[in-house]
Design a protein around this nucleic acid. Structure first.
Lengths: 160, 160
DNA sequence: TTTTTCACTGGTCAATCTGTACAGTCGAAG
DNA sequence: CTTCGACTGTACAGATTGACCAGTGAAAAA
């Protein structure tokens, strides 16, 4: 009686299904059923439940930003003056190149990830961030390489 | 004669197709063709090309980590002793909760993102990172909220 | 113990989608 | 004027989907 569906754990079948969806691209429900050795209806029911619980939000295309010209990724800590979080966030949302923002603990207030086409372009974007009213200080650093690309596979594997 | 297919730009149709794939979940090729007012074969050809160029890497499920128990996200800067980058990366890869790692400019050497089930759990993970041979210093901060979730839609919209 | 509940199986059905192919159109490049 | 590449419109066989349903088994409730 948790009252919170989110709490339900994934069983091994859910985990194996997710792993299959992560690995094999564009795999069909029917094929999943075959691979996992269960009836198609079961997979369909599991998928529906995973969606309903919010475990899976969808299947967005994995777009490689570098392949569309945005070769640079940079991270930045943004310090803002008190009471301006809302407006600042809104302003950041309006900057196309700001691809992610988190409010964090620590000295800085916001942590953002930005994409850019070149160093010059990055400069421009950073300048735009700095220019946002309420932003007091920005310290950024460029990603030179990404030895571990975004992943969550290991977390799933543990559920098997 | 650029010798690098990656350089080819996306035209408006590519961009609209990508936007469609981002927004409408599990949309079929046929439906894309209908929405964009072009023949199915065109969409299929465009999709194939986007894959071939590496623009689209696939359609992985968007898994909501919080829904599978990993409610905490934390970021950390990792300073490592010189000449130990390789081994350190390997060790970090072996830690399931390390969901991303970048080599960056600036004072620290690596920037990582970690997932955890609780504060206690996060402590354990951070300790594991600190314990990696070659790691000299780790400074972490917890994501309290995510006002701008990962996005790249604005970058695509600009191509229209 | 008996009953109820629930997930799973294995099967069907019509509708849709996919991969593939092919001939015709069109504009740009040669 | 011809060639080339991209797009259209069409076609077809095979696979997939969503929706059902009756039957089974195991676990929870009575």
């Amino acid at each position: 009686m948790s009252g919170d569906d989110t709490r339900e754990t994934l069983d091994a079948l859910d985990a194996r299904l997710l792993l299959l969806l992560v690995d094999e691209d564009r795999i069909s429900v029917l094929e999943c059923a075959r691979r996992l050795g269960v009836a198609r209806g079961t997979i369909q029911a599991r998928l529906d439940k995973l969606f309903a619980r919010g475990v899976i939000a969808g299947f967005p295309p994995a777009v490689h930003l570098a392949a569309i010209g945005y070769e640079l990724t940079a991270f930045a800590w943004v310090e803002i003056s008190q009471g301006n979080r809302g407006p600042v966030i809104e302003a950041l949302e309006a900057i196309n190149e700001v691809c992610e923002a988190h409010a964090t603990t620590g000295t800085a207030d916001l942590f953002i990830r930005v994409a850019a086409r070149s160093h010059t372009d990055l400069q421009r974007v950073i300048d735009e961030v700095v220019a946002v009213p309420g932003v007091e200080r920005v310290s950024s650093s460029i990603a030179l390489s990404t030895p571990i690309p975004p992943r969550f596979r290991p977390l799933l594997e543990r559920l098997l």
